[in-house]
Design a protein around this nucleic acid. Sequence first.
DNA 1: GCATTTGTTTTGAGTAATTCAAAACAATTC
DNA 2: GAATTGTTTTGAATTACTCAAAACAAATGC
Lengths: 158, 158
Amino acid sequence: MIEPSEETAGLRLAAADAGLLADSLRSAGLKVTAPRLAVLRALTDMPHSNADALFTAVHTDLPGTSLQAVYGVLASLGTAGLVRKIEPAGSPALFERRVGDNHHHIVCTRCTVVHDVDCAIGHAPCLTPADTLGFDVRAAEVIYWGLCAQCQLDTAHP
Amino acid sequence: MIEPSEETAGLRLAAADAGLLADSLRSAGLKVTAPRLAVLRALTDMPHSNADALFTAVHTDLPGTSLQAVYGVLASLGTAGLVRKIEPAGSPALFERRVGDNHHHIVCTRCTVVHDVDCAIGHAPCLTPADTLGFDVRAAEVIYWGLCAQCQLDTAHP
DNA sequence: GCATTTGTTTTGAGTAATTCAAAACAATTC
DNA sequence: GAATTGTTTTGAATTACTCAAAACAAATGC
């Protein structure tokens, strides 16, 4: 039996992955295009990326791709519900593939790294304000701000 | 005894108010200037305003004032802790004088009106994520999104 | 397979919100 | 009332993003 090399394994994985990504596009009613697959792939590797970082990543694989195309892809993936856009104060918009759950984010005020966090109480208590003021509340967004572990160390020993 | 006219009452109030605003600037270690007083006054009347709206309001009273001055004023008031800046997704930054409590905001997705809301559970349960991931969490920001009462009516009877 | 339709991407330009820098100016301090 | 320090004006630049028209590619029907 022939052992698959690491390279062929990598290719096979990439191919399988491309198939899954293509499927997710198709089932969202979107055409399968190279820029869309590339953006989805980049977002899988680096969640919480901004449009520019994704452009850089995509551009390496697919040199023809324009920044506007990345914005266009992100917009269509967004409305199709395949990616989520978050906009922490003072930062350009960030994108992630984790959608459909009501998870929140924790942002380091020093290095701006972002991580996912689940809601404190498991279900969604903080998703209901004390007084809705007559609003029909559809969503709640929580952002925690603080210092990440590394930045705590860095500020302690400068 | 002479009844104060509405006008003198207004002036007296304005004067008293100017005194209070000036005091708050002084005790924050900031110089008392006309643009700063004007921005504070405008923010009192119209909380959740953006820089441009404040510029328009201030410019009426104090025609020399530039937009950059308003940005400068807001920056210094911000670092002095006299105003708070909020940045709801898809909107320019908004400012308010209500500081020091951990209140949150509810935003109408249709007309973008913003109101203050207190935390659901009174104390701060949603201010603690389930897993801090090693972060030293300093603040939590909650934004509720929905339709305000008026926009619910407007969309029901278009 | 190939033409058609429909949707996507490129190219190029434009805009909104905000920031930067130097000179002019005004509020506090001495 | 002069000196100091901080603020505002003026003018330009930057970042993040959007718009529009033409070129192009994916899916659909034949």
